[in-house]
Amino acid sequence: MSSSPIIELFKEETRRSKSTFRQVYAVIWANLKILLSYKYWVVTDFLSTAASIVMYFFMGLQVDPAQLAARGYGEDYAAFALVGISTSQYLWICLSRLSHSIQHDIRGGTLETVAVTQIKMGAYFLGQTVRGYLISLFFLAGTLSVGLFVLRIPLQINLSTLTAAFVTFLLMILSNQAIGFITAGIVMVHKRGDPVTFMLAGMNEFLSGVLYPLDLLKQFPPLYALARLFPYTYALDALRKTLTGGAGMFSPDVYYDLVVLVAFSVILLPIGLKVLKWGYDTIRRNGTMATY
């Protein structure tokens, strides 16, 4: 141990290299590495998503095809459920992931050590968010492959439906990410798990028609109206209309859904960012950036 090499090194004038991109990349890279070190988790999570598809495949065998066909969703409940379950799981896991990793960083004390560096907290939150979506793509792809290639669930796949589905998918993420920001803001301050995402996920799964055709809800107008308040309801409808119904992006129903999703994004995202900032400022005021 001799301090002189360090002193010499620190005497050198050095280049700074300011790059937000590199910072975001570092956040993604480090957290990806951390996640992959949890090997069991990666495997079990994959298996459990795949298993849920299989389960609904079997459940679907009891479904009366006429009931589905009458509502314009084709005759295949498995396809109907595959689109619903794979996207809703993807979305909610991603949305909760930001607050999870923030909590993890609060617990471990690393949120503070990141915050005193020169990273803009926006870059940190962006990195954590993007990482969430990237990782879950792997699960989404796995789920879809099990559905398509193992269970041979028929989906309408061609250039037009894929483009439409892709655009819907991006808008689904954008319009819902506000929820992720809002919950992350709340979680930072209240430190109590992530009740909001959990609750919204449950309500969406119920109200947006993940497991049954949405118009069954019309029997109960208040519930139906409530369902219309969630962007995911529109996203799911559009995804199904394209992937199981074969519609393209500019078919009137899908187009309408997409416009609504854009509107949701424009309204909700700024609110989400405000709440996130509020959460971060509050823990700095309360001095609770490392307390849980």
């Binding site: 009366d64 409940y77 799964e205 993940v210 497991l211 049954y212 809800l217």
Partner: peptide, 16 residues
């Protein structure tokens, strides 16, 4: 509760 309620609707499209 919502989980249970979902199956109310699912049961509507199922043949027994």
């Amino acid at each position: 509760l919502t989980f249970v309620a979902s199956y109310y609707f699912v049961s509507k499209i199922i043949s027994p």
